[in-house]
Simulated scan of single mutants.
Amino acid sequence: MKRKINLNEVTDKEPIKVDTEIQPSLLELPKEEVVSSTPFKLHIEVYKKPVGYDIYGRIEGEVELICSRCNKSFKEKMRKSFYYQLMPTSEITGGEIKAGDLDVKFADSDALDLAEVVKEQVLLNLPLKPLCDEQCQVPDVPFEEGSIEEDKRWEKLKTFKDKLKEKEK
Rank of each mutant, 00 (worst) to 15 (best):
E62Y: 00
Y53Q: 07
L86R: 13
L112H: 12
A107M: 14
E32L: 01
R69G: 02
P88Y: 11
K13V: 12
E33D: 12
S68I: 03
P50D: 11
I59Y: 10
P88M: 10
I59N: 03
D54Q: 12
P142D: 09
K158I: 07
F40E: 05
L164Y: 08
D12C: 02
V51E: 10
D133A: 11
E155G: 11
Y53W: 05
T89E: 15
E14P: 00
A99F: 13
V141F: 06
P15H: 04
C67H: 01
P139T: 12
L26I: 04
D113A: 09
D101R: 04
I16N: 06
I5G: 09
K75E: 09
M1P: 04
I59C: 07
K75G: 14
E33P: 03
T93G: 05
V10H: 03
P39N: 09
I44T: 06
S37R: 00
L131V: 10
G100R: 10
V46K: 04
Q23D: 15
L102Q: 11
I55K: 08
A111S: 13
Q135K: 15
G95K: 00
K105E: 14
E150H: 12
A107G: 11
V138P: 01
V10F: 08
Y56C: 04
K31D: 01
R79S: 13
V18H: 08
E32Y: 01
L123A: 06
D151Y: 02
I66P: 00
K72S: 07
E28Q: 14
T20C: 11
F143P: 02
I22N: 07
P30Y: 00
P142S: 06
D140P: 02
K75L: 05
V138M: 12
K167L: 15
D162L: 15
M1R: 04
L157S: 07
E45R: 15
Q137N: 15
K165H: 05
P127I: 04
K2V: 10
C136D: 05
C70P: 03
D162Q: 15
M87S: 04
D133R: 05
G146L: 10
P139C: 13
S36H: 02
G146H: 09
F40N: 08
D101S: 07
R69V: 07
